[in-house]
Amino acid sequence: MKKLLISLAVLLPASAFAAANNVGSCGLGSKVFEGQKGIAPQVLAVTTNGTFGNQTFGITSGTLGCSQDGVVTSAWKTAMFIDGNKAQLARDAASGQGETLDALAALLKIDAQDKAAFVSLTKARHADIFASVDSADSIATQLKAALQSDARLAKYADAV
């Protein structure tokens, strides 16, 4: 029983970011549970993929909705950072400077030559990005949209 509770304590916070990461994005599980939203379908899709080992097959063969040219990203780190630093990040973005904004730029692997454009974008689009300071998901979604809308910074959007 203790192991179950510990497992749930670890998995539940991580599941809040599962939708943003699109964990079951290919494999048989993604096909069976396609279009369904929420934690349960995502967990079932991943479990289906793991049980049958089909996601590995899909990636190596380019089938089951998988591609062979995919990029492994760690957007969950960004989501967790945003969640833990929402208020300070909003303040730093509004002023166009600060440790939290610098840390986010580093986490997104913003190149030195693009950092000024990143800071400028977060300041200019502050009202859109931080419209809901209480929601890390909303901030991440809006930040990603802002990055995608900028030709120079669009390459960093997948890290959000």
Rank of each mutant, 00 (worst) to 15 (best):
F33K: 01
A145I: 05
Q36I: 08
A140Q: 06
V119C: 02
K2F: 10
A94V: 03
A93Q: 07
V32P: 09
D92E: 06
F81K: 10
I110N: 08
R125A: 15
Q97D: 12
V72K: 11
F118E: 03
F52C: 07
A112S: 14
L28G: 09
S7A: 15
E34A: 15
A154N: 10
T47Q: 00
T48W: 00
S15P: 06
A45C: 06
A79W: 01
N49L: 03
F81Q: 11
I59R: 04
L11E: 06
Q36D: 06
N49C: 06
G70H: 11
A9C: 14
F57R: 00
Q113H: 05
K3D: 12
F118I: 03
L44R: 01
A19G: 15
H126M: 04
L12V: 15
L101F: 06
G24M: 01
S30Q: 09
Q36L: 14
L153W: 01
S138Y: 03
V133K: 12
L11G: 14
G35E: 05
S149E: 12
S74C: 10
T63V: 10
A79F: 09
V71S: 12
V10Y: 05
I139P: 11
A136C: 08
A16M: 09
A103Q: 13
G70R: 07
K155W: 02
K144S: 15
A105I: 05
V160I: 12
Q36K: 13
A103V: 08
K3I: 13
